[in-house]
Amino acid sequence: MTRRPIGYYVHHHGAGHLARANAIAAASDWPVVLLGTGIGDRGIDLSDDRLIPGGFDGLDGAGDRPEALHYAPLDHEGIRSRIAKVSEWIAVARPALMVVDVSVEIAMLARLASVPVVYVRLNGDRSDPPHAQAFASAHALLAPFHETFERSETPDWVRAKTRYLPGITPVPFKAGVEADRILIVVGRGGVPGNSAWIADAARACPHKSWRVIGPVTPPARCPSNLIFAGWVDDPASEIARAACVIGAAGDGLVGAVLAADRSFICLPEDRPFGEQFATAQALERLGAAIVLKQSPQPVEWPDLIEREAAIPSDVRRRLHDPLGAKAAAVWLAALAGRYIGERADAA
């Protein structure tokens, strides 16, 4: 018996959406088809919807727009193509379920096409009308974070529709920790890192080995204990080897750090809907990380690293489910089976 697939829409901004989709698909016994820009032969590749190739700030330049939409630029050939391709795939594949990670517009399109939707609900203030409508139209909401990260302002009806599933990450890389290694992670969704403060931090801790991954241009004068590795294919292995990780509060990085159970110094970045600030506040409130509102002075780094190393490991471990991806896959399969009248464990 051929099962009708679960569609999984992957947003192109940042690496976390695709990592989450891949982790769920790898853990799923139900067929999962990825849809998104840059997916290539891993699924259904969609035309780019960005106004500026390679850049995305979420602004569509539209003077008028329905209140229920976030991003709807006019006369954009890429959007016409991607909407047509998603609609055609839905008509032919007849998906049992559509996971949307994330896009209010794609969620509405799937709902209009009579497909049950699970909307991935990220942290932050999502009380604006488009998010509220997407949440209301979805059959369920998936929060890829621990329930204790939840904002107190989140309405009860949103909480009631939400399944909290921390730990939707690739299987953690097993590697020995290098006790003196400090890893700085600069994510794909942010701006290129400023290398000056990194070099100053490394100079302030000459007994530590500093390594940077991500889009950062090395400074003209680089201390001998600092390496800029650029983009890497296996950030999980880099995180696994580090004694302490420094980076922003993006969902992907936070999940990877918790999965590897590594010390974390968090510098949240400004993101739409205050997503990273909300996550950072939760980490600080729960005592799971050192959270900084700005880059510290060089002389502060030795004390910060020492303070973070003193945080008990169990504080981080209770925020992570090592079987999170499997739990998400089983839950989604159960929903898919329910909507098409099939038991999730049926062949």
Rank of each mutant, 00 (worst) to 15 (best):
R4L: 05
P5Q: 09
I6Y: 07
Y9K: 08
V10S: 08
H13F: 03
G14R: 13
A15P: 01
G16H: 08
H17G: 00
A19Y: 01
A19N: 11
N22E: 15
N22H: 09
A27K: 09
D29M: 09
D29Q: 14
W30I: 03
W30A: 06
L35S: 08
G40L: 08
G43L: 07
D45Q: 07
S47Q: 03
L51V: 07
G54P: 02
D57N: 15
G61F: 07
R65E: 07
P66H: 12
Y71H: 00
Y71Q: 04
H76A: 06
E77F: 05
E77G: 12
I79P: 01
R80K: 00
S81N: 12
S81R: 05
I83F: 13
K85L: 13
K85E: 14
K85M: 13
S87V: 01
I90C: 11
I90K: 03
A91V: 04
V99E: 03
V99R: 13
V99I: 15
S103C: 11
M108N: 00
M108S: 12
L109W: 03
R111M: 03
V115G: 09
V118S: 05
L122Y: 10
D125P: 01
D128Y: 04
P130T: 00
H131E: 09
A132P: 00
A134D: 01
A134C: 06
A136D: 02
A136R: 11
A140L: 06
A143R: 00
P144I: 04
T148Q: 10
T148R: 15
F149N: 04
E153A: 14
P155R: 12
A160Y: 06
K161V: 02
P166W: 05
G167K: 04
V171T: 15
F173W: 00
G176T: 13
E178V: 09
I184G: 00
I184R: 11
I184A: 14
I184N: 05
G187R: 13
G190T: 07
G190M: 07
G193A: 06
W197C: 08
D200T: 06
R203M: 10
R203G: 10
A204D: 09
A204T: 00
C205F: 01
P206E: 04
H207I: 07
W210G: 03
R211M: 13
T217G: 04
R221M: 03
C222E: 06
S224M: 02
S224T: 06
D234Q: 07
S237A: 14
S237E: 11
A240R: 12
A243E: 15
G247E: 09
A260N: 09
D261I: 04
D270Q: 12
D270L: 12
R271Y: 05
G274D: 03
A282K: 00
L283E: 09
L283Y: 08
A288F: 11
A289K: 01
A289S: 15
V291W: 12
Q294F: 01
Q294C: 11
P296Q: 05
E300Y: 04
P302I: 08
I305S: 08
I305G: 04
E306D: 13
R307Y: 06
A310R: 15
P312G: 10
P312F: 10
L319R: 02
D321G: 03
D321Y: 05
A325V: 05
A329D: 07
A329H: 08
A329R: 12
W331Y: 15
A336S: 03
G337V: 07
I340G: 03
I340H: 09
G341K: 02
R343M: 13
D345V: 11
D345M: 10
